[in-house]
């Protein structure tokens, strides 16, 4: 089993603690002039997102977590799992609801998403930063009203609700920033 010594600690390193995968956020070497050296680290639990502090005696080793980030194409959802594929190896991965979370709002078939895999199993799913989705439901537009800044709710093809300007109509395709869930612009083909 791979492991890291405390002198290899740095931000981003993935380690296994109490059976869970963690990412090191901060590492600080602390040592009284005449005493024991420690590494005090802040780590994020990659399953729960929770951040905790842990201290290790310098010189100790910690088991490495087999966590990788991969780009996978989103294929489809069967309601329970969201399915992704490695476009190189054609290997498929299934991510359940609790892993996909709110990202489900922005998953469009054939878009390439970023997944973190722990021992080959999806931990997190991140959609592209920007996606283009079609509006499937919206109140009729008001011609000429392009500057007021007023918005109305619209449903997009994934089922998610987005606030759009009044002039945007059902059937149009819009660009959305998935990090904020906000409308950016009408998509031009």
């Amino acid at each position: 089993m791979a492991s890291y010594g405390t002198n290899e600690f740095r931000g981003g390193l993935k380690i296994l603690l109490d059976g869970d995968p963690f990412a090191i956020i901060e590492n600080e070497f602390v040592k009284p002039g005449k005493g024991q050296a420690f590494n005090r680290v802040k780590v994020r639990n990659l399953r729960s997102g929770r951040v905790i502090e842990r201290t290790f005696k310098s010189g100790e080793s910690v088991e490495a977590a087999d966590v990788v980030e991969v780009s996978l194409q989103y294929l489809y959802s069967d309601g329970e799992n969201w399915h992704f594929m490695d476009e190189g190896s054609f290997e498929q991965y299934a991510a359940p609801r609790e892993v996909v979370g709110d990202s489900a709002n922005w998953l469009k078939e054939q878009d390439v998403c970023t997944l973190t895999l722990w021992n080959g199993v999806p931990l997190t799913v991140a959609p592209p930063n920007f996606v283009v989705l079609e509006i499937t439901e919206a109140d009729p537009g008001l011609k000429g009203d392009t500057a007021s800044g007023a918005t109305k709710p619209a449903r997009v093809e994934t089922g998610a609700m987005v606030k759009v300007p009044l002039f945007v109509n059902q059937g149009e395709r819009i660009r959305i920033d998935t990090r904020t869930g906000e409308y950016v612009a009408r998509a031009k083909d």
Partner: peptide, 21 residues
Amino acid sequence: RGWLEASNAERDACLDFLLDA
């Protein structure tokens, strides 16, 4: 205080840890 492997630690190492923590 976050030093989970302190179970076998010696007295002075514990005091050093608490001095910092």
